[in-house]
Amino acid sequence: MNRIRAFVDKAGWPRIIIAMLLLSLFIVAPSVGVRVDQSMTNTIVRFGMNGILVLGMVPMVQTGCGLNFGLPLGIIAGLLGATISIELGLTGLAGFAGAIGFAAPFALLFGWSYGKLLNRVKGNEMMIATYVGFSSVSFMCMMWMLLPYRSPKMIWGYGGSGLRTTISLEGFWIHILDNFLTIRIGPNFMFPTGMILFFVFMAWIMWAFFHTKTGTAMTAVGSNPDYARAAGINVDKMRTIAVIMSTVYGAIGILVFQQSFGFIQLYNGPFFMALPAVAAILIGGASVNKANITNVVIGTILFQGLLTMTPSVINSAIQSDLSEVVRIIISNGMIVYALTRVTRKSR
């Protein structure tokens, strides 16, 4: 009994409840004609697609800048990298590496100025971050039309200028990570080894960073900025580093997302990318000022699993258009429930 209670304390009710729900969806799935192996593939692929974006939440949370609602800024840097790579006609691994390479300077620049901004609005980071995300997306809506891209793969067929809303990666670097060392079992199960390895690599870098002197200082800044200052740490500098890291992870994260998804989504594409990432890390057990890699992994699996399973299973079970509504109510209701539990525990 005590062991059960200890486990519940450690895992937390929101995670246990969501895990139960997810499990029951998997159990019910075959009886309504949804294949379990296919569902598992979908869950794993979605985990790989979103994992790095969620990982990008960690540095800012740890430094006390709150949840990175300004993730679209990093995503825009990634989109710039991706489009430049295609513009130059890079394909295959070179294309993907090029995209990361071109995205990085943008992410550094955006992250640096975004960090400077957040240092001026201490205490209101999350609200300002939301506006930064939204306004940068709107600004880029104009820029995608105006920037001098020439590649016929990307611009509108009529008029001959301005980028399309979705650009196919077919022939460039589609599934470049997914297809690396892929394990296939039967016709319906696929394990995207390359993408998961890449996630593990990025998570390892994050883990290692938080074991260095700077990473330790950043954690202390998030825990108690006054303590950190008294220990001679430049609090604003640590926060800026954290914001830059979050932005860079956002940029790389969207590239991984795209190579699996197969398309680059411009214009309003990045608009709502921050919310699923925020929800995932919170469901994973992070609070507003404490997060770790485990939170990322558990949260992403649970949240993406739920997003994969609810539409397919409930669609099949109810057999009506109502399923979409039910799915939204259940998944968002879960997020709200998780958030209420999280805040009570952390503050």
Binding site: K213, T216, A220, S223, N224, Y227, G232
Partner: peptide, 20 residues
């Protein structure tokens, strides 16, 4: 307010300033 990292472990609290 200034003296401790309340949410962190004791070893961090003790070693942090010397480390940084």
């Amino acid at each position: 307010g200034v003296g401790l990292l309340l949410e962190e472990a004791l070893d961090w609290n003790i070693a942090f300033t010397a480390m940084q």
